[in-house]
Write a protein that binds this DNA or RNA. Structure first.
Lengths: 342, 342
DNA sequence: CTGAAAGCGCTTACAG
DNA sequence: CTGAAAGCGCTTACAG
């Protein structure tokens, strides 16, 4: 049989003891020179730094962690049951998180959980493997959050929670959606339908609220009958589109890209042209729609930045620095060919 | 300002010393009772096990790792620049990896790299944070692989490498594609076009080879002019579709789902109906196409299983067990409405 | 079958 | 400014 053996590396890595011996000083001094904590003579420090540079010494982070009672790891929790529309978001925010963590010499552990099973999270935490946790996406009622609080584990939510006591960072969906719809109204587009997804997710509630806010702000009354929520399947979306067409809306606003994709495909099938016959807007601009023709007017968020910022908040929190409880990041409105706007 | 302080948990966790003291035995014995290594009296073992169960003692994996010179972490490397089509694959295989790791009490660290920058990988490895690495997806020429070999770091590729010396686990793309095309040919469909993506990825080369194998196996000659590779943009795909239409192919085989989606949308635009006017097949069945009507005939792979198996191979390798150098996992052919097959 | 002791590679009061 | 020593929470020869 074609097999493979794991020959352990023979070239043992340098330890702090090696460095100390080579330089004829104590481990204590080496440690201090490297960490920058405690006094060390200028020239001693330089000798140490030069030596470890030349001999490629890297401190063992595990040992350091054990001595300091930390791990230099954070966990990123992602839902094991997420769907397509979330993926570009996860991909981009993950990049940001990894980058920020890396910059601060932390590493990111991956944990998947589902609504009913967060045993993976429990394992990781009871194994002492992480100093903090980033939760992404959140349900209105989130059991993982309860668990983290009980464990006294530092965590930050990348998203919005109704619970104001939770440390959270999110894109400003509500304001973004509001401003977007206002823009439409200011362009004389008043009959605007909304197709939304699962309202168990906080983000979808915020988007809906933004939509409503816009009408309030412009003294317009919105028509409840133009709102279709819980359109979680293609069939439901198509049904909603049909009804909105019957009501002769000028524009359909889609809460997310997956809904938007379904709307676009259905419109093509119905031979409705965009924006002549019907205008289309998405509340979220992901790569899913990137290549569509005509390009779709939408809100654009910087997910990578969101991840980076969320991670930096968690790290500060872990280090005992003060952080703002809730941070909302900006958005852009991209007017494109799918609407008759200017 | 609304701020948040990190109050360290006051309830210190039990250590092995606490357990030993409580039971009036030595740490050594406790350790042995838990690990199962070394002799311990039956009743002593039971007392220990009962105590830790009742008092919820969990060994500190970090300390254990330090003593044993291991970390109980593995790294999963994912490309920072992957596109939509890869995401369902990553999501599913990641689940499998996390599950298997979890079952064996390992954790998964996330590392993103790009073709030109694997500094995150370097950091993690030189920080001693992992015992092994899973590489996903592979380029024909992969710099990360060279690095891992030089570092003598155990790794396995979830994918196929042209280099036979690399530990690898993959879906059997080549055979799958071959059998799929043979199926078409056996159904009397002979004029079959192929639209493929970036051939810098090994998987795309395998799929092409599978396509060719099928013609060889059935004594048919394939027509090089019906093969369009490097269709990495929607425009290129549409151009290829047009040319294939001109050549009056009966069926278009798409190397991946993203290509397939473009083909389907373009067909809708051209008012070609499927399968009446043109038949369509995909070499990969992801959630991208899940809801399409008509459903698309395609190969289906169990990515979750792939991840699980890959992880188990890595873990065995780390533990010094013998493993097969190359493992190919099965596939299914799903005949659906997009082809006139039976 | 059990334990005292040394060790994994760091950090950090404490003392000088 | 520097060092000896104790400690982080485990494992594992070695000895009995």
């Amino acid at each position: 049989m074609d097999v493979f053996h794991n020959e352990k590396a023979l070239n043992k890595r340098l330890t702090i003891t090696d460095v100390a011996q080579a330089l004829g000083i104590s481990k204590t001094t080496v440690s201090r020179a490297i960490s920058g904590k405690g006094r060390v003579g200028e020239d001693t420090r330089h000798r140490v730094l030069k030596f470890i540079e030349e001999n490629d010494y890297k401190p063992n982070v595990i040992a350091k962690g054990l001595a300091q009672q930390r791990t230099y790891n954070i966990a990123l929790i992602i839902p094991g049951d997420c769907n397509l529309v979330d993926m570009p978001f996860f991909q981009n925010s993950m990049q940001g998180i990894c980058q920020e963590a890396s910059d601060k010499d932390y590493d990111v552990m991956l944990v998947t959980i589902t609504q009913n099973d967060y045993s993976n999270l429990e394992r990781m935490i009871s194994n002492n493997k992480v100093d903090g946790v980033i939760l992404s996406r959140s349900l209105v009622k989130d059991r993982a959050i309860d668990y983290l609080e009980k464990q006294n584990m530092p965590f930050v939510l990348m998203g919005t929670s109704l619970d104001k006591d939770i440390l959270q960072v999110d894109n400003d969906h509500q304001t973004g959606c509001c401003k977007m719809v206002e823009k439409l109204i200011n362009n004389g587009i008043c009959k605007i339908g909304l197709i939304g997804g699962n309202s168990a997710f906080v983000v979808n509630r915020l988007r809906l609220q933004g939509y409503k806010d816009a009408f309030k702000a412009s003294q317009n009354l919105f028509d409840e009958r133009l709102i279709f929520n819980e359109c979680t399947t293609r069939e439901k979306v198509e049904k909603a589109v049909k009804k909105l067409m019957d009501k002769e809306v000028e524009c359909i606003v889609c809460m997310d890209d997956e809904i938007c994709m379904s709307v676009l495909q259905f419109a093509t099938k119905l031979r409705m042209s965009i924006p002549q016959n019907i205008q289309v807007v998405s509340f979220y601009d992901s790569s899913l729609l990137m290549n569509n023709k005509p390009a779709v007017t939408s809100l654009v968020f910087d997910d990578r930045q969101l991840g980076k910022y969320t991670c930096s908040v968690l790290l500060k929190h872990i280090h005992g620095e003060e952080v703002r409880k809730k941070t909302l990041l900006g958005y852009e409105i991209a007017l494109r060919e799918s609407t008759k706007t200017f």
